[in-house]
Design a protein around this nucleic acid. Structure first.
Length: 423
DNA sequence: TCTGGGGTCCTAGGACCC
DNA sequence: TCTGGGGTCCTAGGACCC
């Protein structure tokens, strides 16, 4: 019988920042979401002074400052590169690895392959990751993913590196102590439903029969019930599947009103989404555009709308997609509102190889294909915005996002590497 | 002044067909 | 007055995740 381990980086974004700026260790540190909007990662010290996950930065910045704290804008290049290093280390311990998110992985610990016990292997992984990357991790070990998640939570709570949830009495005890909302896959709405059916703890949930679970919380819920019983229902996804949709959206640095500016923003979103799609050899059948005003400003008139266009053929051409997006925007734009956010999404993605054959591929289409290839190459060398479509994105345009507390991209951009001076 | 972004899966119900 | 029924396909929206 194999075990599943969940490896979860502690305060991942903050931990990444602290590796290269260790003088902030021991102080309250937070990392902010895009646009420097909300807190998305917190050091233990930041948690200790009461800063909540998801808190708007402008509400806590003063408190943070008073406690000698520090805030960083998100630096995804840095986090992604550390994720890559961590996963490389993990793969040395198991060839069944599912990279679940930027800071989590599920792996299978095969008993027969090693003489060591699963717990000891997990402890070794935690040690290695910490030693070679500087990122602390917690690991939960159990028979199923759902139980491994709960074990991981325990590990964090008890400040242990590894927590194993395998023996009957221990599983019983932990499930009894766990409110149902803390189970992976059960959130607020479902909790309300479960509570009114008399189910309050993870143990209560485990003990209902699957037919009842299915009726109450659909097939998703009945899988969770089985997983809590120790029956694996959620296999590890060892090869990451191709994306089914790609979204690009941003809140604007400042509210914008004109169609011209919305066009500018949406063109740049489409170009980014399309470039990502091409890089993974996918084509889209549908493109959607949406715009919305700031719902927090109840004193201002509110409007939100979206429109989706089904394309005549699948495509990966930025030009075709931009044309469609502009038509969609035209349909939903209303003057007189202060827009806060706009986004685009590409759907029904299929591999390039399955692309609808344009039997009579016209000269224009082939030219466009070559153009896109050239654009991608140039942007790969000179930066993502070297070539833009229609209008060049002006630096500091109202729609561009704020990222005012950004740390250097130390691990990915050679010019931002720290310089040591000896005098 | 300031409140993130990117995904997946499931289901109910409408459209459509015979 | 009486107004089929069953199947499939598609989509919007809900719910959840990090």
């Amino acid at each position: 019988m194999n075990y599943t381990a969940l490896i979860d980086c502690d305060s991942f974004y903050v931990s990444c920042e602290l590796i290269f700026q260790p003088w902030y260790r021991g102080r309250p540190v937070v990392v902010l979401s895009n646009n420097d909007g909300c807190v998305v990662s917190r050091s233990a010290e930041a948690k200790a002074i009461g800063i909540q996950m998801g808190a708007p930065y402008f509400q806590i910045s003063h408190h943070l400052e008073q406690n000698n704290g520090k805030a960083f804008s998100s630096n995804y290049e840095l986090y992604a590169s550390l994720n890559f290093r961590i996963m490389k280390i993990i793969r040395e311990y198991s060839d069944q690895v599912e990279i679940y998110s930027i800071d989590e992985a599920f792996i299978t610990l095969e008993r027969s392959r090693r003489l060591k016990k699963p717990y000891d292997v997990a402890a070794e992984i935690a040690y290695s990751v910490r030693k070679f990357t500087g990122v602390p991790v917690s690991i939960g070990v159990a028979r199923t993913k759902t139980l491994a998640k709960l074990a991981g939570d325990r590990a964090k709570k008890r400040e242990e590196k590894v927590y194993e949830l395998a023996s009957r009495p221990r599983i019983d005890q932990v499930l009894k102590e766990t409110p149902v909302i803390d189970v992976w896959g059960i959130n607020y709405r479902t909790t309300k439903k479960l509570n009114s059916a008399g189910i309050f703890t993870a143990a209560d949930l485990r003990d209902i029969d699957t037919r009842r679970a299915r009726k109450l919380i659909t097939i998703v819920g009945s899988r969770i019930v089985l997983e809590l019983q120790g029956i694996p229902c959620l296999p590890l996804e060892l090869v990451s599947q191709k994306k089914k949709s790609i979204t690009r959206s941003r809140s604007f640095g400042r509210p914008i009103q004109t169609l011209y500016e919305l066009r500018e923003a949406i063109k740049s979103h489409v170009a980014a989404a399309a470039a990502e799609m091409r890089s993974t050899r996918l084509v889209a059948r549908t493109i959607g555009v949406y715009i919305l005003t700031n719902s927090f400003r109840q004193d201002l008139p509110q409007y939100s709308n979206g429109h989706k266009i089904k394309l005549a053929t699948t495509t990966d051409s930025s030009l075709e997609l931009i044309n469609a997006a502009m038509a969609a925007l035209e349909k939903i734009y209303r003057p007189g509102y202060e827009y806060k956010k706009a986004g685009v999404y590409l759907e029904i993605l299929s591999p390039t190889s399955a692309e609808t054959i344009r039997l009579f591929e016209d000269e224009n289409y082939l030219k466009e294909k070559r153009l896109m290839t050239a654009v991608d190459r140039i942007n790969a060398i000179y930066g993502r915005h070297a070539i833009a479509f229609g209008t060049a994105p002006r630096r500091g345009a109202a729609w561009q996002m704020k990222r005012s507390m950004l740390s250097p991209r130390i691990t990915t951009v050679i010019t931002e590497i720290p310089v040591a001076k000896i005098s």
